[in-house]
Computed example of a mutant assay.
Amino acid sequence: MVGLVVPTLNAEKEIRTLLDAVMAQTRVPDDILIVDSSSDDDTVRIAESYPGVRTMTIRRENFDHGGTRQLALDEVEGDFILFLTQDAVPADEHYVENLLVPFADPLVAMVYGRQLPKPNARRCVQLVQKYNYPSKSNVRSADDIERLGIKAFFASDVCSAYRRSAYETIGGFPRPCATNEDMLAACRFLRAGHKVAYESNARIMHSHNLTLLAQYRRNRAVGEFLARYSEELNAPSEVDEGGRLVKTVANQLMQEGEICELCAFVVDCGARLIGNRVGRAVGKEKIIRKPEGNADPE
């Protein structure tokens, strides 16, 4: 049995497209749950108009990437639980079917799919996604951590699937967790002896042309996350991996003569770097100030 969870907030303009694509799959999920953060629009009404789709409403201020997904996973039925975000749309009718393929290996606990850029994506965004989501699938285990560093834990709940039995062995999602709950879950799976798979044939359309401020804020949150869980991640720094991404994308933009895009990409990387460093500093300060013996709620 397969379940699907989609967190939403004011998704009126997107939810029909997403659910139409889900209903057209060769393997339609058996239980579909929309977890809505008290939308002001018709998101819930539209979702409930689809047969087999259930909704659950939470207070907007209570949304948490880790905690809300945990709440939803406890509610939805299925041996395998899929997650999609409201702005991620399956690229074809075989998305669900293909995402489940790696689970043929009983050690695979988590699978994430390939994110293709939307038609309006900037060229630099297209190249970043091509780097992060290549055409070749892979399966990773704890043996790959030393070779891949923090890249071994790369995963995305924009489009993912979890084996429930394996998920329960790691205690579920971290909660609270403002970002990167997927990376931490992947880390815990690998260190517990499970495997994490990237399935390139499970494709969705998803991308963002973020402003510099949005990029800064996103990476500040990531920086705080990395500082908080630095001991648990305990992998070589992400700096080397980030450098490889920047070099790959910049070289391609230069070859294509996309000078304006190259300049935009460099500035974008600056916003990422500053956000990351500020976030790390804030995260370390919070750890230092944390009262001794007062454990984080999990």
Rank of each mutant, 00 (worst) to 15 (best):
Y131N: 07
D157K: 02
A192W: 01
M183D: 03
D182K: 03
E146A: 14
E168D: 14
F154M: 08
F173M: 13
Q129G: 07
R140C: 01
V128A: 12
S160A: 15
A166V: 03
S135A: 15
M183E: 13
L127D: 07
D143P: 00
A152D: 06
C159I: 10
R140K: 14
A178K: 07
R140W: 11
L184P: 04
S165A: 14
V128K: 12
A166S: 15
A142N: 13
V158D: 01
S141M: 01
A185L: 13
N138R: 06
Y162S: 06
A178V: 10
L184F: 09
R188D: 05
P134G: 05
P174L: 08
A155F: 08
Y133K: 07
S137N: 07
Y167N: 07
C159P: 00
G172L: 10
P174I: 11
A166P: 04
R147T: 13
R175H: 08
L184K: 01
T169P: 00
A142G: 01
C187Y: 00
D143C: 02
Y162E: 12
I145V: 15
Y167L: 14
S160W: 04
P176N: 11
A166L: 06
A152F: 10
P174F: 11
P176C: 06
A185M: 12
A161G: 10
R191K: 15
K151Q: 13
N132G: 15
F189W: 00
C187V: 03
R191Q: 13
D157H: 14
G149F: 05
R140P: 04
L148W: 02
F173P: 08
R163C: 09
I170Y: 05
K130Q: 14
C159T: 13
G171F: 05
A166C: 14
I145T: 03
S137P: 12
G149Y: 06
I145G: 01
I145K: 00
E146Y: 02
V128F: 00
S165M: 01
A185F: 03
C187G: 00
G149P: 09
V128T: 11
G172T: 09
K151C: 05
F154C: 06
D182Q: 05
S165R: 14
